[in-house]
């Protein structure tokens, strides 16, 4: 799946100081409603899976059926966009390397996640390289929650990607240029990316790059239909 990796939204990290988020670290995609946060997160998931890595998708809003159907839709768009003829092996790769953990109706606690990850490792030898967390309400989340995730990222040697919902009417940013709703916790995140719609596509901009204070012009333009990087 070299074809995909060359158009993955994670291309935005090619210009970052470490070229990736890295194990033990947290990363977040910030965007307004309807811009395509979940689509981008799923592309990040595909990026990791196609590199033969294990992934856990943590859904805090939807049940596994909806998450799976979202992956399926994105996957078939991808197959079409990249003109992949024989996709049965890739399908199998996704099924084998992805695990969905859903937490319905506020049943999520980092301790429960820790137990599930331990159970996956001990009983299935499934040790994720990446965790994707979709549907977390950053406005209600407390700092301790992200600290819990950070501990999990370190304990399981995995990188953790989140999506965060921003609002059109809240424009203030903190002194480091990080917008709502991440301005309270930006020190806990190693990578912060903003997803913004524009006239010629959707743009991914790197707002935080590990400890690197000098972020260069790093924007990646995505096709608004497929969310794949345009050259």
């Amino acid at each position: 799946m070299k074809d995909f990796i060359s158009v993955s939204p994670l291309k935005v990290l090619e210009k970052s100081s470490r070229k990736s988020l890295g194990p033990g670290n947290l990363g977040v995609l910030i965007a307004r409603a309807g811009v395509g946060k979940t689509a981008c997160l799923i592309h990040i998931a595909f990026d990791r899976i196609f590199r033969q890595e294990k992934l856990v998708h943590i859904s805090l809003e939807e049940g596994p059926e909806k998450v799976t159907s979202y992956y399926n839709v994105m996957y078939y768009d991808l197959v079409k966009a990249l003109n992949i003829a024989d996709e049965s092996e890739i399908r199998l790769l996704i099924d084998r390397n992805r695990m969905i953990l859903a937490y319905l109706k506020q049943s999520f606690e980092t301790e429960r996640l820790r137990i599930s990850l331990k159970n996956l490792a001990e009983n299935l030898e499934f040790r994720p390289d990446t965790l994707i967390v979709d549907g977390l309400d950053f406005e209600r989340a407390e700092r301790t929650l992200f600290e819990g995730f950070k501990d999990i990222a370190k304990e399981f040697d995995a990188e953790v990607w989140f999506s965060a919902l921003s609002h059109r009417h809240i424009t203030e940013v903190n002194e480091r240029g990080i917008p709502h709703p991440c301005q309270q916790f930006d020190d806990l995140f190693s990578i912060i990316i903003e997803l913004k719609p524009g006239t010629s596509g959707v743009f991914l901009n790197l707002l935080k790059d590990h400890d690197n204070p000098a972020i260069v012009d790093n924007g990646v333009r995505l096709d608004p239909n497929t969310f794949l990087a345009l050259s």
Binding site: M99, L101, A102, L104, I115, E122, N123, L124
Partner: peptide, 22 residues
């Protein structure tokens, strides 16, 4: 959860998801 995962794994099962509900 652990026992269930293990019992399915021993049966050549492919676990696709685990949902916590209460």
């Amino acid at each position: 959860q652990g026992s269930v995962l293990s019992s399915i794994n021993q049966r050549r099962g492919l676990i696709t998801s685990s949902t916590e509900d209460g």
